Amino acid sequence: MNTEELVTLLATRADPVDPGIAARRFALALLVAALGSLLLMKGVYGLRPDLSFAAQTGLFWAKFALPACISIGALAATSRLSRPGVKAGRAWWVVGAPVVLVWVAGALLVGAAAPEDRSSLILGISWRSCPFNILLLSIPGFVTVFLAVKGLGPTNLRLAGAAAALLASSIATMVYCFHCPEMSPAFWSIWYIAGMGLVSAIGAMAGPKLLRW
């Protein structure tokens, strides 16, 4: 049997690909990730006591918008990298834009503050635990998003793992906002980003093993 005959044989036996399978996989993965992180957050940390008041402020929703915007870019990157031979393209720009904006906002805030107030704006009261709290809350999403990605046949496993982990951690960070008392953009620009970066680094290291198909 020559090559052309083999290709013809494989093509005639191939089932049609469902164009909506990726969307359904990611929709289910994100739903489970969000619910899992929420239940974990409520069980381990609890909601912040003044949430009803904080949620009435623009600053709270600005904090929430940081991981929410990152999640949009991370989802675009993950969905593209889940397909064989496809690059993330401009999705990384969508990820980077909110990071740059919060860095600028944090720098302006610290620069305008009195010298004795700057450390509290940057460190808050939870800088030691914040990245690791995000890491813990990312576990449900890490599992579900990796399962969704693996079933779609990624080829750049390290980069796909980093994107999938960033998606999981951005969802976890959105959930974490409902517990975290920090209201300084200077804090979010360092410690929220550090938490998401930590999970992404783990995803990059685990990708070649966990996403192999």
Rank of each mutant, 00 (worst) to 15 (best):
R24E: 01
R24A: 11
R25C: 02
R25V: 03
R25Q: 05
A27I: 02
A27C: 06
A27Y: 01
A27L: 15
A27E: 02
L28N: 09
A29Q: 05
A29V: 04
A29E: 05
A29W: 05
A29T: 07
L30S: 00
L31P: 01
A34S: 13
A34W: 04
A34D: 00
L35F: 11
L35Y: 02
G36T: 10
S37N: 12
S37W: 06
S37Q: 08
S37G: 12
L38A: 15
L38Q: 07
L38K: 07
L38N: 04
L39R: 03
L39S: 11
L40C: 04
M41N: 10
M41W: 09
K42E: 12
K42L: 13
G43M: 05
G43K: 10
G43S: 12
G43W: 10
V44L: 13
V44A: 10
Y45G: 03
Y45W: 15
Y45H: 11
Y45R: 11
Y45V: 04
G46T: 15
G46M: 12
L47Y: 14
L47I: 06
R48H: 12
R48V: 07
R48C: 08
D50L: 07
D50R: 03
L51Q: 04
L51I: 13
S52T: 10
S52L: 14
S52C: 00
A54N: 03
A55D: 05
A55L: 09
Q56P: 00
F60E: 02
F60I: 06
F60H: 03
W61G: 01
W61S: 01
W61Y: 03
A62V: 05
A62S: 13
A62Q: 14
A62Y: 07
K63P: 00
K63R: 15
K63L: 03
K63N: 14
K63C: 10
F64N: 02
F64R: 04
F64I: 13
F64T: 04
A65E: 12
A65K: 12
A65D: 08
L66P: 08
L66C: 05
P67H: 07
P67K: 06
A68R: 10
C69E: 07
C69V: 07
C69Q: 05
C69I: 03
I70E: 09
I70Q: 14
